[in-house]
Simulated assay, not measured.
Amino acid sequence: MTETSAIDSFADRIRTGGHGGLVSAWVGIPEPMVVHHLTQEDFDAVVLDMQHGMWDMASASNAVAQCRSAGKPAIARIPVGDFASASRLLDAGCTGIIAPMVNSVADAQALVRFTKYPPLGERSWGPTLALNHMKLSGDDYLRTANRLTLTIAMVETRAALDAVDGILGVEGIDGIFVGPSDLSIALSKGEKLAPDTDDIDKELSRIVARCRAHKKFVCAFGSDGKRAGGLLKLGCDLVVASADTTQLRAGAASAIAAARSFAVSG
């Protein structure tokens, strides 16, 4: 299997299960070289955060190329409601799109219109970079793109929790991504940020059950590696083991502490 085919089998892999849990990097620093370094580690995928990260379309497209050259699928989280950018990112070769604040069936249907070709959606034709990356003819890409790419709706509000079955029932929505920080704010009515609590785990367990009933997958963000492992135990198919900024600062803090400790003890 070539690196390209490994990337483009990722969508089938996460849909069908049996993968033992997938772990993704999460990058908000708008620098493709950061992506290059992280793809050398044993991540199963890389998420480019365009909602709260600083990526623009040009830098994100270059980052997608870095991912694909390393044999890793790139997934992009778009800004809220920016479904037009979802089409452009798929054209650039992204394997998946995560859309935040999908709170209703109507939101899910709108997302599908931009990310899937007919008959599921109304995605406009123009996947020039994707064709180059995947080495497919136009006809082959058109026939397979809806299967090879992932449309993922974020559940992170009370409205989304109430509508989760309807969202999962929209044809073309491949899976759910749980945003535990915003969900904790919503559940506490704005009183606290508490993404790693029993209350979140209770809701996540219910979402996992609904995803299994609809034969769709579920993803979630973990604040660190241990939390990500706990999310896998809860039944998530893909987890994020903290963001690039958290990992960068934790690594720096660890190195500084080690240096100072050795200097004192030596």
Rank of each mutant, 00 (worst) to 15 (best):
L136H: 07
P195V: 08
H133K: 02
L150P: 00
A153G: 12
A220C: 15
L136S: 10
E191W: 01
V155A: 07
L168D: 05
D199L: 11
K135D: 15
V164G: 06
D174I: 00
R212S: 11
G179H: 03
I185W: 01
L161Y: 09
C219T: 11
L136W: 10
D165N: 13
K215H: 15
T149R: 03
N146K: 04
L187R: 02
E191D: 05
G172R: 03
F221H: 15
A163F: 05
I173H: 05
R210E: 12
S205I: 09
G172N: 05
V164Q: 10
A160V: 08
K202M: 14
I200L: 12
K192W: 03
D139Q: 10
R143S: 14
L183P: 07
R210N: 14
F217M: 10
V208W: 07
V155M: 06
N132V: 10
D201M: 11
L148G: 01
A209C: 09
G175L: 05
S181N: 11
D139A: 11
K192T: 14
G138T: 06
V155L: 11
R158W: 11
D162R: 15
G166W: 06
K189G: 00
C219D: 02
S184Y: 02
C211K: 11
N132R: 11
F221S: 09
G179M: 00
D199Q: 13
S188A: 13
H214Y: 10
G166L: 09
G190A: 11
